[in-house]
């Protein structure tokens, strides 16, 4: 498969990798709950979500493979951690269940907004893949949103934990909307909508739920739209990661690197 000549190929490939990395790293974090969730039923639910996110990552890297020839396993298990382009949000340790749920909700809501925006993309494979991903993400959003609403307004302790998690995860989540490298070119070619616009839609979505959950994050309302009132945790899209990602990738690649490129 080739990238049509009118489209900026390097920024496009970079964005595909970034989206694959987001899903890979969050899927990895989610899978850390397998065996450790608060109740058996939730263990099963979170393991499903982990598999779905890892599956989405595989789908992004498979598209990338069609365009570049690099295999998904090479991308995930042989690439240097500094070349990952995930946002910082997904790499932070799993924390308590409150942090996990809030992060997942912020991510799911962002995924929803972004995948819907791809329906108008000038790059056909993005349109096709986003439809598939949306089909699974709708359920994730239902689940994480349901947990946010219930735990936000559950007991005193659950409210306190969820509020703390929201305060931590909110500025981190703004990193989901950090501009991709050369994003302006992608916007101009009609591949994506500007991240800034997506962030605005996302804020409207999450504020609706956070209000029901009695949770507060630093935003102000201006001309009917929300604006964050905190500094966003950026850097992931350009490879300025925290040490958490280095550690995570070192775990991820640990066995594979004993015999890199071998069938395992």
């Amino acid at each position: 498969m080739n990238i049509p000549s009118g489209l900026p190929s390097e920024p496009l490939l970079g964005m595909i990798v970034a989206l694959g990395d987001d899903e890979l790293v969050l899927g990895h974090r989610n899978s850390e709950w397998t065996g450790f969730a608060p109740i058996l039923e939730e263990d099963i639910a979170f393991s499903n979500i982990a598999q779905d996110e890892l599956g989405h990552s595989l789908a992004w890297f498979s598209l990338h493979e069609q365009l570049t020839g690099k295999t998904p396993d090479w991308m995930a298990f042989e690439r240097n951690w500094r070349d990952f382009a995930c946002c910082r949000l997904v790499a932070y340790p799993k924390g308590d269940f409150a942090y996990t749920v809030v992060r997942q909700f912020f991510f799911d809501a962002a995924e929803q907004v972004r995948m819907k925006s791809f329906a108008q993309s000038s790059f056909d494979p993005l349109r096709q893949l986003s439809v598939k991903i949306l089909a699974e993400e709708a359920y994730h959003l239902m689940h994480s949103q349901g947990l946010v609403e219930r735990l936000g307004d559950g007991t005193e302790e659950s409210h306190r934990r969820m509020q703390a998690a929201a305060e931590t995860a909110f500025p981190q989540s703004l990193g989901l909307f950090e501009d991709f490298p050369a994003e302006a070119d992608l916007v101009k070619a009609g591949v994506v909508k500007p991240s800034r616009e997506l962030q605005e839609e996302w804020l409207t979505e999450i504020m609706r739920v956070l209000t029901r959950a009695t949770l507060v994050v630093p935003v102000r309302k201006k001309n009917g739209t929300f604006e964050p009132e905190c500094s966003p945790d950026l850097g992931g899209r350009t490879g300025r990661h925290t040490d958490d990602l280095r550690q995570l990738v070192s775990d991820l690649q640990h066995v594979y690197q004993l015999a890199p490129g071998q069938p395992w």
Binding site: T34, L40, Q51, D73, F77, V255
Partner: peptide, 20 residues
């Protein structure tokens, strides 16, 4: 966390999930 390759990782999560 250490499973080598996408397929092994997905399979292992699904397997341990089955045990739950």
């Amino acid at each position: 966390p250490y499973a080598p390759g996408f397929r092994r990782k997905l399979t292992l999560v699904a397997k341990v999930q089955d045990e739950a």
